[in-house]
Design a protein around this nucleic acid. Structure first.
Length: 550
RNA sequence: GCGCCUGUAGCUCAGUUGGAUAGAGCAACUGCCUUCUAAGCAGUGGGUCGACGGUUCAACUCCGUCCAGGCGCACCA
């Protein structure tokens, strides 16, 4: 059985052998050889740049070297592979029989096709959304949620063990301000004149919150501490509900107050930094000497009011993540936090933790547009668009897809009216339609038309280019999952699935399937089944439904 | 002022950790439904990849300097 990773490995080793037999003194060729999947089908299924690499060392032209390599190259494990030197590259075209193997594997593994164990059970903590529990989730949270959830699926499919965690920011002065804002709302609901506190929270949701509290607790004079806890609990419940509607579920909800403040873990971390001599006292505050690690300025760990800063809590939080046994930490933050990345890494560095295993992705800002006009949003005035509203407007699949189809670093323009209005032309439907088309086709197939054992089915002697491209897509599928996972870029898989859908649509319009010749028909049916599997599995990894009819 | 992100077709964005002729969707224009789903297919037009240098056999990709836009730079989180 040959999968794409094995084929690449075989090619690499064979090339390296050939290079060494040409010039035994060559060292470290294996690591320099790149085996890539060419964009242009005329360049074969795989290509290597080895001749170009050796050209300088061997003082010969790349084309001469390519010819030499070809004469020294043997591929017993990949029979009937065409080797074509071409302008400094060596192109490989594997046999149709070999290609078809991946189709049979896909049919056999079905919903498990595409999964690998390449990440070898690595324990990953993926923290995302983690919105302040003082207001509803917004569109950037929606973007982070889609990204995080999808990334988690991909990493899992590539063999990692993922914990999805939501950090509840339930300590600090904001939660007090939040409680005071609720108290004012409760009073207002009783007809008592009460404005929101200075810099406090406004918006309809505060009144909704007040009403819910009155319903469950009755009317009384609340202690601010108590009210803060009640309010945050409800807010977190709302967040959870919004996320579930969006298809995003967390394994762990981590309370800053309970897990870090009350357990003394923050104090411990500060003490550790003190013992390492990276702190000093100034203006009644305790500072971390970030400058010693190249930062522009030092950072406060303990504030004048004796409470730990957000920074101190975050250090303790990430130390705790490592202590819980995770070997890789991934955080997805909003664009307004990017300035925080460096100082947190410096603190972890000071504590001698493996900073290289800590990665922060930024879910960049989302400009909401309404038919090309930018919607002004202000949290202060409570007129921002929430994640719930977005979901109600455009639906789960279109919303998730719109975020996932682009890199997380791009500053996204999201035109609500466009996504809503053009639902028929939205790219998400293009993929789903390809899937639905195949399902509808397969429903019409009689059992007698299907070969009983796929493994023994021989593919036709000659096949169309379009058919070959589809076989190749099935072969490549696991690679693109792995690729998207390790680069933390789900949109790479989206691009691949879009390409596959296009190839299938094209194939479907050009050729008859059900009333083709008997041999062709059987092949086209099982080929379509294979494509159905990768589209279905791919869409599921993206957290998008794969409808059987549309 | 310093830092991060972004700059690719009219618009929104891809571009496989430096590869071969820079791609897709939308918008515009031409064709294609008595036959498996036209939410589709086939095709046309549209680009000095922000600018200028540098490294390399090879640069949209890496480095440097600028230009433009966005966002950060609290004892807020």
């Amino acid at each position: 059985m040959n999968n794409i990773f094995q084929i690449k490995k075989i090619l690499k080793e064979a090339l390296s052998q050939a290079a060494k037999s040409i010039e035994p003194s060559l060292v470290d060729v294996e690591n320099q050889i790149a085996i890539e999947i060419p964009r242009d089908v005329n360049h074969g299924d795989f290509a290597s740049n080895l001749p170009l690499l050796l050209s300088k060392q061997l003082k010969e032209s790349p084309t001469a070297i390519a010819a030499k390599i070809k004469s020294h190259l043997t591929l017993p494990l990949l029979p009937d592979t065409q080797i074509t030197p071409m302008g400094g590259f060596i192109n490989f075209k594997i046999s149709n029989e070999l290609l078809a193997e991946s189709l049979f594997v896909a049919l056999k593994l079905n919903q498990n096709y595409g999964k690998t164990d390449l990440l070898n059970g690595e324990k990953v903590l993926l923290e995302f959304v983690s919105a302040n529990p003082t207001g509803p989730l917004n569109v950037v949270n929606a973007r982070a949620a889609a990204l995080g959830d999808c990334l988690s699926n991909l990493l899992e499919a590539a063999g990692a063990i993922i914990t999805k965690e939501y950090y509840i920011n339930d300590a600090g002065v904001q939660s007090k301000l939040f409680a005071e804002s609720i108290r004012s709302a409760i009073r207002r609901s009783q007809g008592i004149k009460a404005d929101a506190p200075e810099g406090g929270y406004q918006g309809n949701y505060i009144d909704d919150l007040a009403n819910e509290i009155i319903q469950s607790e009755g009317i009384k004079e609340f202690d601010i501490q108590e009210l803060s806890k009640i309010g945050i609990d409800i807010m977190v419940k709302w967040h959870k509900q919004s996320l579930e509607k969006y298809g995003v579920y967390f394994n762990s909800w981590f309370s800053e107050y309970e897990e870090l403040h009350r357990t003394g873990k923050i104090d411990q971390v500060i003490l550790l930094l003190k013992q390492l001599n990276y702190t000093y006292q100034l203006d009644e505050a305790c500072w971390f000497e970030a400058k010693k690690f190249g930062a522009e300025k030092d950072e406060v760990l303990i504030k004048k009011d004796t409470n730990p800063s957000y920074f101190a809590a975050d250090i303790a939080y990430h130390v705790d993540k490592f202590n819980r046994g995770y070997t890789k930490l991934i955080d997805i933050w909003g664009p307004d936090h990017h300035g925080h990345i460096n100082r947190l890494k410096l603190a972890l560095l000071a504590l001698k933790l493996p900073v290289e295993n800590f990665n922060v992705l930024i879910a960049q800002q989302v400009n909401l547009l309404n038919l090309g006009l930018k919607i002004k949003m202000s949290k202060r005035e409570g007129n921002f668009i929430t994640m719930d509203e977005l979901l109600n407007e455009v639906g789960k699949d279109a919303a998730r897809f719109s975020f996932i189809m682009r890199g997380s670093n791009s500053h996204l323009d999201f035109d609500i009216e466009l996504v809503k209005k053009q639902t028929m032309e939205n790219p998400v439907y293009y993929l789903q339609y390809a899937h639905a088309r195949i399902c509808s086709l397969l429903k019409k197939v009689n059992d007698k038309d299907l070969p009983r054992k796929f493994e023994n089915f021989l593919i036709p002697q000659t096949i169309e280019v379009e058919e070959r491209n589809l076989l190749k897509a099935i072969l490549e599928f696991p690679y693109w999952i792995y690729d998207a996972a390790i680069f933390y870029e789900p949109h790479r898989l989206v691009n691949f699935l879009h390409k596959v859908s296009a190839e299938y649509h094209s194939f479907y319009s050009k050729y008859r399937i059900l009333d083709a010749s008997s041999e062709s028909m059987k092949f086209r049916i099982i080929l379509s089944s294979g494509i159905e599997i990768i589209l279905k599995n791919g869409l599921h990894l993206l957290g998008i439904s794969a409808p059987e009819q549309m």
